[in-house]
Computed example of a mutant assay.
Amino acid sequence: MTQAFDAALRAFTPRLPLGVGFSGGADSTALLLACHARWPGQVVALHVNHGLQAAADGFEAHCRALCERLQIPLRTGHVDARPQPGQSPEDAARRARYASLGALALADGATPAIKDIAIAQHGDDQAETLLLALSRGAGAPGLAAMPAQWERAGIQWYRPLLGVAGQDVRRWLQDQGVPWIEDPTNTDERYTRNRIRRQLLPALDAVFPQFRDTFARSAAHAAQASLLLQEMAQGDLAASGDPPRIAALRALSPPRQANLLRHWLRQAHSVVPSAAQLAELQAQLADCATRGHRIRIRVGAGFVVREGEMLGWYNS
């Protein structure tokens, strides 16, 4: 029953030494143990203490004790993962976690230097991410769900278990006889992801047993489409100027114009417009035939404005 897990680890070929994100939960414990068994002495556990629960220090103590018993080096980081106004708790925790993992890997004076990090999201997590994206009406980037590999700040990140069902990960870990901790928030159905995990995935398993594979293929198609859209937006932005000239934007078809605007706002200002904000901005551009026409539309924490013959941006 653990063939998929074993096959996924055999196919995983990172640079060594390897950092493994380690929360102490079942999935990250399985990944850490499997990587340690395959590359003994070449794996470092990276633990992030979010400080959001009373049990957070207990999680860290568990991770420290297990790593000491198995003689796996452990690096720990403490973060403030409280959300900013308008930010979801899940997004705040995710951003803080990845920033801390990267900092732990590249910590000054840390030995050994780590250039590759593996994290333990699996096939069920991928399906949940795709369903969340569908529920929010996401476009191609959102429907691409989670990539199996990407680069950020000089680090290669990997999700080697994306093709493995969550139950297979736990079965492998149970065979090892190694304890793990259960995060109580994973059963809190106030979070949409938990409702999907506990209610929708079992129903999908009963009706479409191969849904993880088919969802993964759909996400891969969306990822490919997203890359093509990004390449087109980069070319259009280079042609229209950065920030873009209004005349150049008005010359594009509405879908291509929307693609360029999303790309510019995300790349230059780290904001993603809602569908309504983007539609309003495009309507304003369509009416922007005279020098006197003003544009001022809120997007995220700032505003898109007209600055002469170009679009501009300022924080509120």
Rank of each mutant, 00 (worst) to 15 (best):
residue 316 S to W: 09
residue 210 Q to W: 12
residue 32 L to R: 12
residue 245 R to V: 02
residue 107 A to V: 07
residue 178 V to F: 10
residue 29 T to C: 05
residue 21 G to S: 13
residue 14 P to V: 03
residue 251 A to K: 03
residue 194 N to A: 05
residue 61 A to Y: 09
residue 125 D to L: 09
residue 127 A to P: 01
residue 89 P to L: 01
residue 143 L to I: 06
residue 267 Q to I: 12
residue 100 S to H: 01
residue 75 R to A: 11
residue 83 P to T: 01
residue 137 G to R: 06
residue 273 P to F: 01
residue 279 A to M: 07
residue 284 Q to D: 12
residue 188 D to L: 05
residue 215 F to T: 13
residue 134 L to N: 10
residue 202 P to N: 10
residue 145 A to K: 13
residue 19 G to C: 08
residue 148 A to N: 09
residue 145 A to L: 05
residue 295 I to S: 04
residue 300 G to V: 04
residue 259 N to M: 09
residue 115 K to F: 07
residue 35 C to Q: 04
residue 29 T to H: 02
residue 71 Q to D: 15
residue 182 E to C: 13
residue 297 I to L: 09
residue 113 A to N: 03
residue 269 H to A: 07
residue 312 G to C: 06
residue 17 P to T: 04
residue 239 A to N: 13
residue 154 G to L: 04
residue 54 A to S: 15
residue 289 A to R: 14
residue 252 L to C: 03
residue 90 E to I: 13
residue 149 Q to N: 05
residue 302 G to D: 07
residue 69 R to V: 09
residue 53 Q to C: 06
residue 172 W to Y: 14
residue 304 V to K: 00
residue 26 A to D: 02
residue 114 I to F: 03
residue 191 Y to V: 05
residue 176 Q to N: 07
residue 239 A to T: 06
residue 174 Q to G: 09
residue 112 P to I: 06
residue 86 G to W: 03
residue 6 D to V: 12
residue 4 A to C: 09
residue 239 A to D: 14
residue 24 G to L: 02
residue 162 L to Y: 07
residue 108 D to R: 11
residue 86 G to L: 11
residue 111 T to N: 15
residue 278 L to A: 02
residue 102 G to F: 08
residue 300 G to A: 08
residue 85 P to R: 01
residue 152 R to K: 14
residue 72 I to M: 12
residue 155 I to W: 09
residue 281 L to Y: 01
residue 21 G to P: 00
residue 85 P to N: 06
residue 271 V to C: 06
residue 84 Q to K: 15
residue 227 L to K: 13
residue 105 A to P: 04
residue 31 L to A: 05
residue 181 I to E: 13
residue 7 A to Q: 14
residue 72 I to A: 04
residue 156 Q to P: 02
residue 74 L to C: 10
residue 297 I to C: 11
residue 78 H to Y: 04
residue 56 A to F: 06
residue 96 A to K: 10
residue 217 R to W: 02
residue 120 A to R: 01
residue 81 A to M: 07
residue 275 A to Y: 11
residue 87 Q to P: 09
residue 142 G to Y: 04
residue 118 A to M: 08
residue 80 D to L: 02
residue 45 A to E: 02
residue 250 R to L: 04
residue 307 E to F: 00
residue 115 K to Y: 04
residue 295 I to T: 02
residue 159 R to M: 05
residue 9 L to K: 08
residue 191 Y to L: 10
residue 121 Q to A: 05
residue 46 L to R: 01
residue 98 Y to E: 00
residue 188 D to M: 06
residue 31 L to Q: 03
residue 123 G to H: 10
residue 62 H to Y: 14
residue 282 Q to S: 02
residue 152 R to E: 07
residue 217 R to I: 12
residue 126 Q to R: 13
residue 146 M to L: 15
residue 199 Q to H: 15
residue 87 Q to Y: 10
residue 232 M to D: 12
residue 255 P to K: 00
residue 177 G to P: 04
residue 58 G to E: 14
residue 83 P to K: 01
residue 237 L to W: 00
residue 52 L to N: 05
residue 79 V to S: 01
residue 209 P to T: 06
residue 43 V to L: 09
residue 146 M to T: 10
residue 60 E to H: 11
residue 174 Q to M: 14
residue 168 D to Q: 14
residue 267 Q to L: 12
residue 127 A to K: 00
residue 14 P to A: 12
residue 128 E to K: 11
residue 30 A to Q: 06
residue 100 S to V: 01
residue 172 W to N: 00
residue 57 D to P: 00
residue 279 A to V: 05
residue 116 D to S: 02
residue 24 G to T: 11
residue 280 E to Y: 11
residue 179 P to M: 10
residue 47 H to V: 03
